[in-house]
Amino acid sequence: MAADPTTLGLLLAGGLARRMGGGDKPLHTIAGRSMLAHVIERLSSQCAGLLLNANGDPVRFADYGLPIIADDVPDFAGPLAGILAGLDWLATNRPETEWLVSVAADTPFIPRDLVARLHAAREEAGVPLACAASGGRTHPVIGLWPVSLRQDLRHALMVEDERKVSRWAARHGVAMAEWPAEPVDPFFNANQPDDLAEAERLYAMLGNA
């Protein structure tokens, strides 16, 4: 079986975390480590490097040692703006790398086979994009993006004011890679304070698997 194309990982931490009371959701801890640290540990071995998309003062993420990139699109335009920032960084700094995988930085149980299965899904379907799904729900932000579509994405954001990941992806063709949601949904994310307690419970069940 051929190796997967070289892929860079993008951790999306640019949200406003209103339901969590503000602040940076990925810095909340589970089992003594930030959710961001859990995501980094799970994704780093799958990628040729990682980027962190975050707006505001980058110093708060300095301890993680990752390149930190902010949105170029103003007014917190959502995850598509973060994906565009990642694609632009890749085109400038790693032009030999054609693929970017994005994950939410508050999803501490990201699958260890995420990148391989996303590539397999898009190849099997013959389409340029892939995103994750579990338990009958799609997770458009957990997706695979080719650098070749970055100018189309820029036009969608800047000219069409498109903000919905799934709607933009559907234009080009997007495959779904499905994971079971039991016993632990690998795409569980912590949006509210009560979710942190649930994440602790799930981590105890899952361990380091």
Rank of each mutant, 00 (worst) to 15 (best):
12 L>I: 11
35 M>K: 04
110 I>G: 00
168 W>F: 12
192 Q>A: 14
113 D>S: 04
11 L>K: 03
179 W>F: 01
2 A>V: 03
182 E>I: 01
107 T>M: 14
180 P>F: 02
145 W>F: 04
25 K>C: 12
1 M>F: 11
50 L>S: 04
134 S>G: 01
63 D>E: 15
64 Y>N: 00
139 H>L: 13
174 V>E: 10
166 S>V: 07
85 A>G: 04
66 L>D: 03
174 V>P: 02
142 I>K: 01
12 L>S: 05
31 A>M: 01
123 E>F: 14
4 D>K: 11
39 V>S: 05
49 G>H: 11
143 G>H: 03
172 H>E: 06
139 H>R: 08
88 D>Y: 05
125 A>G: 04
206 L>A: 14
169 A>V: 04
142 I>G: 00
22 G>Y: 14
202 L>K: 12
113 D>K: 06
89 W>A: 03
36 L>Y: 07
105 A>C: 01
124 E>W: 02
204 A>Y: 03
98 E>C: 07
137 R>T: 10
85 A>P: 02
157 L>F: 04
189 N>P: 00
136 G>A: 02
89 W>T: 01
73 V>N: 00
63 D>F: 04
187 F>M: 08
143 G>E: 08
202 L>F: 13
182 E>A: 14
77 A>G: 05
19 R>C: 07
103 V>P: 00
35 M>G: 12
77 A>R: 11
181 A>D: 15
134 S>V: 09
153 L>S: 05
62 A>E: 14
104 A>R: 10
116 A>M: 09
15 G>D: 14
178 E>N: 11
160 E>Q: 14
198 E>T: 04
47 C>E: 01
155 H>F: 13
8 L>T: 08
1 M>W: 12
56 G>Q: 06
31 A>C: 03
37 A>I: 01
151 Q>I: 00
99 W>I: 12
18 R>F: 10
84 L>S: 04
60 R>Y: 09
122 R>E: 09
52 L>G: 00
105 A>R: 00
19 R>A: 15
114 L>G: 06
187 F>V: 11
164 K>E: 10
88 D>G: 01
36 L>N: 03
14 G>H: 13
131 C>D: 05
111 P>A: 05
79 P>F: 08
24 D>W: 15
13 A>G: 08
141 V>Y: 13
93 N>W: 12
30 I>S: 02
141 V>L: 14
64 Y>F: 15
46 Q>A: 07
